[in-house]
Design a protein around this nucleic acid. Structure first.
Lengths: 71, 71
DNA sequence: ACTTAATGCAATATATATCTTACAATATCG
DNA sequence: CGATATTGTAAGATATATATTGCATTAAGT
């Protein structure tokens, strides 16, 4: 399970909403750094945080996160 | 973000596939205990693991995990 | 060019997801 | 009932998600 790469569209979804990293972070209750690292693909966030990011950006989970190569 | 409750249908999806907790655990590369605790709602799994659970059960993310009350 | 907002990045600390091992409880089937 | 498979659960250890602080870099606007 470790070698698996995950892609995400958090940055695109955030920018579409006109939000800064800090604003999105405040909306979902994490720090700006956490958002930045998730967008950079360096973090493997928990499902709870992903669900809050989906709600905050108006996207669904499957539109935000997927296994690289499977879409 | 902490008080938020997450619901999931991992157990239903697993049983539909005719898999035991241990078989599903082996498929996605975690331990049986991890699967049991996720099904019991006591763990907040990472998106990577959730994506592997979705792939292994033939469901999509949004069908497996959601915010309690929002569906 | 200067100022400010926004982002990138790094080190250290903390919280928690996951593992390991073990045993108890429950279901299934002879 | 007895045997085996499956699941529940708990304590302690490890890995990693996230926080905190600080500073560098980039973008936007004046």
């Amino acid at each position: 399970m470790d070698e698996l790469e995950i892609d995400n569209r958090v940055k695109l979804a955030r920018v579409e909403k006109g939000l800064t990293q800090e604003e999105l972070a405040d909306l979902v209750g994490v720090t700006r750094q956490t958002i930045g690292l998730i967008e950079a693909g360096k973090y493997n966030p928990t499902i709870k945080l992903c669900l809050m990011l989906a709600r905050a950006t108006g996207k669904d989970l499957d539109g935000l996160f997927w296994i690289r190569g499977e879409r």
